[in-house]
């Protein structure tokens, strides 16, 4: 059996050859002018997390599923389901601790310690494995940005899987 470490290397090799589009110029820059302990923070992951009652992501869509799921801040993190399965990564770590990809419990600790101002009422998850990200770039990612802006979020912390 090929070990997960070999698969990781294979995936990295493949990704080096993959024609990732260069996204041109300088990124947008919204520099933070506030102390973190006064900021409202939201999390975004591409681990394909969803609540048990939500529709799972669709892995049959060619080019990837660009939709997102809202994760309420009050969720018990053990209830989140990992929708993203891929041969490129080992899901056993996440199965034993969801904070490995979606560190909501760690951010709750930061909130309790007063290191961040507060957590937003909702967070978001997208699916990984999107090879055709047009819909993500033009529609779903800006949509989530606008929702978080309407929530008066100051800081977003993002994690891949």
């Amino acid at each position: 059996m090929v070990s997960i470490f070999k698969l990781d290397d294979l995936y990295r090799f493949f990704m080096r050859a993959y024609p990732v589009k260069s996204y041109g110029g300088a990124p947008p820059n919204a520099a933070l002018h506030k102390e973190l302990n006064r900021c409202r923070v939201a999390l975004i992951t591409t681990a394909g997390l969803h609540r048990p009652e939500q529709t799972p992501y669709n892995d049959k869509i060619i080019g990837g599923d660009c939709s997102y799921r809202e994760i309420p801040n009050t969720i018990e993190t053990q209830l989140l389901a990992l929708g993203h399965r891929s041969k490129a990564f080992d899901a056993s770590g996440t199965e034993s601790d969801i904070n490995l990809v979606f560190p909501l419990d760690r951010f709750r600790e930061l909130e309790n310690e007063g290191k961040i101002g507060s957590l937003n009422d909702r967070h978001f998850s997208f699916m990984g494995s999107i090879t055709k990200p047009k819909w993500l770039i033009e529609k779903t990612a800006p949509e989530v940005g606008q929702l978080l802006q309407a929530d008066d979020v100051d800081v977003v912390f993002l994690t891949p899987v």
Partner: peptide, 19 residues
């Protein structure tokens, strides 16, 4: 790649992001 693309879109709305 998805994280970076989402991050750019969120930052474009005026929210500071880190990943």
């Amino acid at each position: 790649q998805s994280v970076g693309l989402i991050q750019r879109a969120v930052e474009a709305t005026g929210i500071s992001t880190t990943s």
